[in-house]
Design a protein around this nucleic acid. Structure first.
Lengths: 144, 144
DNA sequence: ATTGAAAGCTTTTTACT
DNA sequence: AGTAAAAAGCTTTCAAT
């Protein structure tokens, strides 16, 4: 992982649809060498995948909320229970009490309420504290 | 936005590097028609961009935390102040008091502390409450 | 809006440095 | 690791439906 790799990652986070020739020109390498470096970044798992980024509002997910979930039992192995709720975009085990922090996207606040109901139905969950987002300043890739 | 468009979005969120021929086969369309649909999804802004997804730990961002930021003044136009801190991956204005919720990725907890210091330095910020993530269950695309 | 095919690039491989 | 060039494959455009 040198400077060129880091530069390539930044460029590919901005636009993964550009050609290796263009990428190579930007970092001062031939298309072939650029291709080989990107291939290795994938192989080593630094690049996990290439994906399109979708506007949440355009697909009926205009409401964003973060929900703190409290539990009376150990939550370390209940990831699947959260994954089973499709409106949950992220779920993290957090420090403090037995707790999980989830990021939820729904079409309406009514649907958000329904997601909270389904979270409550998870075994051991003793409480939720939802925080609704009014405006997203930015969401951006993590730069190296 | 019909069912085929939604299917295409799901497939492209999983792997945007596949060919239009493969995509078309999956949804029962020719490569040309698939290309045209994807082009329109881009044009309409449903697809924002194509990007690689990078493993945060591999680029020295193994520590993840969510930080609630309280402020004594209106925060609606201080997005740039948060954007100026590169370790902040997301920043959202949240309901409740004058507050912002940010997602931070750093290499170490010492660096996290330094980010908190820089957040405190933002005009009007009166307090922060950091929650460190112990384990990420999942982070996934929003499905239509 | 979709098809099928042609033209023009890109990726991917290979031989060489 | 990098370069350069060839082969294979893909994107993009276009006439037709």
């Amino acid at each position: 992982m040198d400077d060129v790799d880091r530069q390539l990652l930044v460029l590919l986070q901005q636009d993964a649809a550009q050609s290796y020739a263009a990428l190579g020109q930007a970092v001062g390498l031939s298309a072939g060498a650029t291709h080989e470096r990107v291939r290795k970044l994938r192989e080593r798992g630094v690049i996990r995948r290439t994906a399109v980024e979708v506007d949440p509002a355009a697909i009926g997910r205009g409401v964003l909320a973060f929900v703190m979930v409290d539990s009376t039992k150990w939550v370390g192995d209940s990831g699947d229970r959260f994954a089973a709720i499709p409106e949950i975009q992220e779920a993290h085990v957090i420090a403090g009490s037995a707790a999980v922090l989830v990021k939820v996207r729904t079409a309406t606040t009514e649907q958000l309420q329904d997601v909270l109901r389904r979270i409550y139905a998870i075994d051991g969950v003793s409480g939720t504290q939802a925080t609704v987002v009014l405006e997203t300043f930015f969401e951006r890739p993590v730069t190296p």
